[in-house]
Design a protein around this nucleic acid. Sequence first.
DNA 1: CTATAATGTGACCAGCAGGTCATATGACCT
DNA 2: AGGTCATATGACCTGCTGGTCACATTATAG
Lengths: 220, 220
Amino acid sequence: MPKQTFLNLPEEKRETIINAAVDEFAEYGLENASTNRIVKNSGIAKGSFYQYFEDKQDVFTHLLDVIEQKELEFFKDQHPPNNNMDTFQYYRWMVKTGMEFGLAHPRMIQAAWRVLLGEGFYYGKNLAGYRQKTTQALTTMITQAMERGEVDPSVDVELAVMIMETWSNAITTYVLNEGLKQKDVLKWMRARKTQETIDKLLYVMEYGLRKTESEFVKSF
Amino acid sequence: MPKQTFLNLPEEKRETIINAAVDEFAEYGLENASTNRIVKNSGIAKGSFYQYFEDKQDVFTHLLDVIEQKELEFFKDQHPPNNNMDTFQYYRWMVKTGMEFGLAHPRMIQAAWRVLLGEGFYYGKNLAGYRQKTTQALTTMITQAMERGEVDPSVDVELAVMIMETWSNAITTYVLNEGLKQKDVLKWMRARKTQETIDKLLYVMEYGLRKTESEFVKSF
DNA sequence: CTATAATGTGACCAGCAGGTCATATGACCT
DNA sequence: AGGTCATATGACCTGCTGGTCACATTATAG
């Protein structure tokens, strides 16, 4: 957690610092991020940095908190187009809305994903908590889907969650890497072809998942 | 490419150096690998290292070559249990044989994947070639599968390849991370439960993929 | 105004990084 | 024997790292 000194700062200054950190993480990841560069790019003194944060990991976990909060606000303002969506439609809506959010804050997301996907595993305990939140949410979602009869109740919940996580990871990576190559990200992202690709990916996942277990047993 | 000096070395010495490098990459990735530590752990002088290699990335790409060669030999000795396999059975066999190979050289694989998955994207051109080989192989495979009528010809080849890659990545990551937690890796890997999990994952993929496009079109 | 507390600052430190190079060693040839 | 050439060595260089700390500045209170 950042120290009180940082939280007392005027918002503008806090933002400047966070932005410098975001750029640094997006460019270099966590291990290779340089506090010296962050300090230089945010125009504060080295000493100040250590009066605000414990170290660079402290900055990073704070960044994750900021993102989480922004994302919550963002999702609050969005409304599912339809209240009678089944679980897969809902998941699809979530993935896409998540992408829209990502496009509203591309650097932040890039920084977070670069670190979480690239180095997250090896940082173990420190970052595991943040990944677990998603897992928990998906588990709840799948369980409810079963109760509603939308998913074969013999499906292994853990497995389904892993599959959904894998896909939202893969799609995020895809969007981040393809999207940031484009001149006009928003245009690319909303293009029919891009949307179709993502739809198809999700569809393949969904189609496999809907009938997994019962068919699986038969096939052996 | 390593310099001639390195290739002239007695095999034993070369292995010692490669092993030290493998340990280093597996532990620290590429960017944070330390030539000093590699040198210390392989018992050679700093100067010698630079007479063998350009830099640490040179060592890493050489490592990839070594793995590729070992893998080729390994696959040559294996025989598909059945000559009449369809494409998906073949893919399944490949994924599993690949896993067996990984278990025969766990540190090497760990080192390679840690770097390719974690940092590969950001090294861009330097490592892209190695990833592309797999992509190419899968593309050929899918195309042939279509000719044989095993995959719906309206399926987008690129998409199918991406899906298969995503899954073999996900499974490798899974096996690497779960497997290395175990006391007896080989036993865990060959356990019924592990095999079943992997079978199910592949099955979900396959089931989704077999009928993607035609069903997909209908569903819109 | 003074006294006190909070915040800001950058020179400075030890440690390690990647990389160089003058020199030493020793195998092989004439 | 002397000469040549590939190989081996580690002290040394510069540059950057994360982190500290004595001091300067500013805000608050009496």
